[in-house]
Design a protein around this nucleic acid. Structure first.
Lengths: 329, 329
DNA sequence: CTGTTAGCGCTTTCAG
DNA sequence: CTGAAAGCGCTAACAG
């Protein structure tokens, strides 16, 4: 079927070794021979068999990218960033998202062990000790996208959740002069959520301002319910800072239902700046994470690690956050 | 490093052939031998080397999924659907999106030829003759996600753009009693766009109603500009049916700017039902394509084709559309 | 500068 | 039911 290295060699009256050298741009081959072989290869429409090459090198041109189910909104941007950078280094991206037919764990174990991929990028806002152990034992380089500050010993890209939340809270207090703030958290196992909460609390404490916390789970519904609780007591907060935009939308829903007006009766702020936020009415004041570069950073780091170009034991990069001031507070 | 088949064989006092048979669940091996080998393999933490296996079979467990840059919103759902189905059949998904560093064409050519992948899913709303030719010559099965009715000879999943647009237009005329309708199209090379336009026109003609067409490009900005043109003449349409929701949002922007009210002064309808549409004010009446199954359908078909389980020369599946009636008309 | 050759880990005839 | 052995296409010593 497809032409092999043998045929090219035969037609060019050289050994397969020479052809192989040409393919790998080995400078030792004579210019003349080089040209001739390239010509014949083209003529035969010869393409090196990647499967064979990967096999003999025991190293593939494949990198795995594992994504959890949650972060729909970032999915696209991250994949694009990763793919773009990897492609330029000659790698392909295998994308896997955990879903009902496979757990994150089995996914990981197979990926790390079966030799298919040469490196792995793992986006996992939550990670349990077992998983971490499995990761530590990996024989291939891994780059984590995870915000847990306690997680050491990995190449890591983190979102700057803490500062984002801190600065937003600071803004709400200093500029908007709220004196009683509420925060709705995401799942407590989620590092992003925990750091946002911490940023919120620290800012409230710094300014000695009253605050309360509700436990949500990043879903719209939980935002709705938490908002309901917050507004049903006699002592109502002046502003709700939701742990993500989705929950902020849930707040919008409840607030509208109860006939209140944002931001006059109550303010709402979010985190993430998902696409829809600018179109809500009123448009949502929120924190934007510079997500577009996360995928690129991760891929960059991974490639360097694969190529042994990294001298430091592990790198940590922070994707900065930025306040997006709109009309909801 | 990692245990190989040889070591397992040696420890079990059998030949590597027998071990191989166990790995491939060959029923010929004796139950006893089978168990013993499985046990030893586990003990040695042996994982078959996929790179080697793929190589000798000259067939990988990899499938390519190529996506254009445009369709952000669907990206996620399609990848998930594909990944889910493929994973259950033992395949991995290599995702590639065309971007500034590679054109769709080079992407395709490499993918089809380098032997890395065993099948390809290509989401390409526009396709030129050259590309089609390249696809026809492919030695691996390809499933297209493309709505061009003229495109024959491929396994294909299509969106039911025509009926969606037709029924929406019919609704605008019969139920909402508009008598002068405008349509903003996407790029003319885009099949989805062309079919939506055709559905719109056919419905207008059927009901003998006045209509006009503006050429957009699926971007918000083009929606804005086309809307501006439509509303600046003396004879204004009663409703604008945008070729996608993004352009409908552009219309919203212009209409709000000019102080008009939707739907009292002018109606707006869209196509796609992207996430934001329900949160616009007023919420957008639009056409939803059942996108969630497209990825699954495509993967299903591809797997069957790879396994030679398909008797028909090529399959065509339609992803149906459904009207989503909200407040904007 | 080029050729010879071993071998990567596995599957798959072919014998027995 | 099991073993021996060939070989997939390529790379990488080693030899010349």
């Amino acid at each position: 079927m497809a032409a092999t290295i043998k045929e090219v060699a035969r037609k060019a009256n050289v050994s397969i070794a020479t052809v192989s050298r040409v393919l790998n741009e080995d400078p030792r081959v004579a210019k003349e021979t080089y040209k001739r072989i390239v010509h014949i290869a083209n003529q035969l429409n010869y393409k090196p068999n990647i499967l064979a090459r990967n096999f003999v090198k025991q190293k593939s041109n494949l990198v795995g990218l594992i994504l959890p189910e949650i972060i729909d909104e970032f999915f696209t941007e991250i994949i694009k960033g990763v793919d773009e950078v990897l492609y330029r280094s000659g790698y392909y991206t295998i994308v896997a998202s955990s879903h009902k037919y496979k757990s994150l764990k089995e996914e990981l174990i197979t990926f790390i062990n079966n030799g298919l991929i040469s490196g792995l990028i793992l986006l996992a806002p939550e990670l349990n000790p077992k998983l971490i152990l499995a990761l530590k034992k990996s024989s291939i380089p891994i780059v984590l996208i995870n915000s847990d500050p306690a997680l050491k010993g990995f190449d890591k890209i983190s979102l700057d959740n803490y500062n984002g939340a801190f600065r937003m809270t600071e803004y709400l207090i200093s500029k908007r002069e709220y004196t009683y703030l509420a925060h709705i958290t995401g799942p407590s196992v989620n590092n992003d959520s925990e750091l946002r909460k911490k940023g919120f609390i620290d800012a409230c404490r710094k300014y000695k301002v009253k605050y309360s916390i509700q436990a949500g789970d990043f879903s719209k519904e939980s935002g709705y319910n938490c908002c309901k609780k917050l507004l049903s007591g006699k002592n109502k907060p002046g502003v709700i800072f939701a742990g993500n935009d989705m929950m902020a939308i849930g707040c919008y829903d409840y607030i509208q239902k109860s006939g209140l007006k944002i931001p006059v009766d109550i303010g709402v702020a979010g985190f993430d700046d998902i696409f829809v936020s600018q179109y809500l009415s009123p448009s949502l004041t929120t924190v934007r994470i510079n997500i577009e570069n996360i995928g690129r950073h991760a891929a960059d780091t991974l490639i360097q690690r694969i190529n042994n170009e990294l001298e430091v034991p592990n790198v940590l990069r922070l994707a900065e956050s930025e306040l997006v001031i709109r009309e909801s507070v």
